[in-house]
Nucleic acid binder design. Structure first.
Lengths: 195, 195, 195, 195
DNA sequence: AATGAATGAGCCTTCATTCAT
DNA sequence: TATGAATGAAGGCTCATTCAT
């Protein structure tokens, strides 16, 4: 077992363990000790790699967010038209990286505790802004900016709302279901003419 | 003169204090002692009226939920057509009883901590089901059940998603804004013909 | 057992326990838990009466200091001449309230940790200033101010130095020994003429 | 080329780092890791050169003490008469090797934590004994043994007491000031006739 | 000789809950 | 009904020490 340069490895292990621990025990009971044990490490080591429990949570959230971003970017690479690009965003939002119970629990718990942590709140604000900006970028090619803005806001809300419901009830059914609902909205509101 | 019937009074004081305490200190720091102090009571008395801290949280959530219900019912009383009744639901969802920062904080925090409390989760499930059922009831009069179900789900998601964003960013702007977005969706999806 | 107004009682118990715990376990091992146990209390209660461990230490020191002050004042009350008043200070400095092993340990430990605690340092500075001021007050009646100031400084140093040695070696011999040394110095330096 | 004889070099680095770390962070916060970093070394290496943290502290103290000894011996080499030799002790006690803030902090902290470390306590006892013995050796040539013993004790106490005050208030003013006070005492008590 | 990863014990502090009054 | 004193169990974090490399 190597003894040097463990930093990135351990940090990833711990970040993953946070998600699992929150899912299994709930946010309030996701203690540093439990997170560490879940990562197969001792409690003490956590503060060797993260200054704080809060930093660990922050990095966890950042990691979740960047997985979503990666997924979105990957899907958009295969999209040719604005319409396809919008659909790529919808698909990514209910894609594998996000649409599983563990991530639901973690993301939601973080949500519920963000208002009193500047850093966590910032992450969430970034997510919200980015989702709407991404949508706007392509919607603006399909309609005038005023309508595009409203639609972006509505679609972003719908995505989050659907996701919120699954997060609560825990039911990862077929991701095509929420995708379908969102797409219908998109098509109805964008006139259905090809982008 | 013995103090009779303090129960309901104290219980309400405490439930209100929970909302305030969560808003001010965050869920994790809304301790029994702080809640009690905020209600002008001593820490010990809390367990006289509630068996648990969890029960107190549960009652708080129930209270929030029934305020929403009351508001919805009141607004629907003035509605004549199915279309008006749907709009009443939209209006209530962003009405005063829900659309203020304190309630945001509390509701969201409870959300984030519900997955590991059966009782809290049940409350939220009830809310979700009721919102969709309420919408379904009237939408089914405007379209076939299949389309109605999907629209109800989409609208419920949009309502929650808009609300979620305001809950996070804390900005209760004009409630007419989210109402407008939701209504546009409703009208586009329901054909716009008068119900 | 009364349940109201325990504050002063508990606070005194805890302050006394600090002195005992430092003496028995050393400063570094005088943990809150041990201090509490020594006071016959639970660990948790400490923070009901003191905001901090540091505050508890601070109050301990203050208490030690005020005992010395009380003792000094009491002895000076029986002193008629400046010379007698100076001797009262000497006597008090090696009096019962200070001259016992427990107090030595505590005082010295606090000394050793004062440089990095503003509050503790302030207490010690007060002690140093007060001792010299008290001496000055009477010495100035026996000689010119310049000589008095130097003598006050020398006597204060001698008192502390003797005390320091006993604090370290733990040997509370007859308090008349250090008193005698200090008095000799006083008499030699003040010319021995009656005050 | 193998690094031979790193032992003494590293040990000195670490001992010096202890003094600096105690001065900067206080005794309680002078952790092994911080001491090592200050010495430009890794935390692990400390236990290669010292069995214990306690041993490191012990060696630090011993080093401080032997610096004082070296200084005293050096100054006494230039002294012809007993009186001059006593003054050499006084001068050395407030000499550069001792009279600086870093050494103050360390020495005092060690004092405050010595009572529960046999080895540290032994060092301090050696210091105390040596100072008085050194003084006695020459004072006994100037007066009878009884007076000499008392004067040695008084002078030793005064030296420590003055030093203690500077250690606390941190103010290394002109070393001639405490030297002057001590010499005055010496001269007054020894009759002032040339030794 | 040297690193820094890793452990595990222990500390201060907080807190839900109980209880004497 | 109401208080606030008291408990005891964790929790986050620190740290001396060990160990693989």
């Amino acid at each position: 077992m190597p003894k040097l340069g463990m930093g990135p490895i351990r940090r990833k292990q711990l970040v993953d363990a946070v998600v699992g621990a929150i899912h299994e025990h709930g946010f309030a009971n996701a203690t540093v000790a439990r997170i560490a044990r879940r990562a197969g490490l001792s409690p003490g080591i956590v503060h060797h790699y993260f200054s704080d429990k809060e930093e660990l949570l922050f990095e966890t959230m950042r990691s979740l967010l960047s997985e979503l971003r990666r997924d979105t970017v990957a899907r958009q690479r295969n999209a040719a038209t604005p319409r396809e690009r919008v659909n790529a965003i919808i698909d990514a939002s209910f894609g594998e990286s996000q649409f599983n119970e563990q991530v639901f629990s973690a993301w939601l718990a973080l949500y519920g505790n963000a208002r009193h942590s500047t850093r966590l709140q910032r992450i969430l604000v970034i997510y919200h802004r980015r989702l709407r900006t991404n949508l706007m970028y392509d919607l603006a090619k399909l309609m005038d900016r005023g309508r595009a803005a409203r639609l972006a806001e509505g679609m972003a809300a719908m995505i989050d709302g659907l996701w919120l419901r699954y997060a609560l009830t825990g039911g990862p059914e077929d991701p095509e279901h929420p995708r379908g609902i969102t797409r219908s909205y998109f098509e109805a509101a964008s006139g259905g003419n090809p982008g």
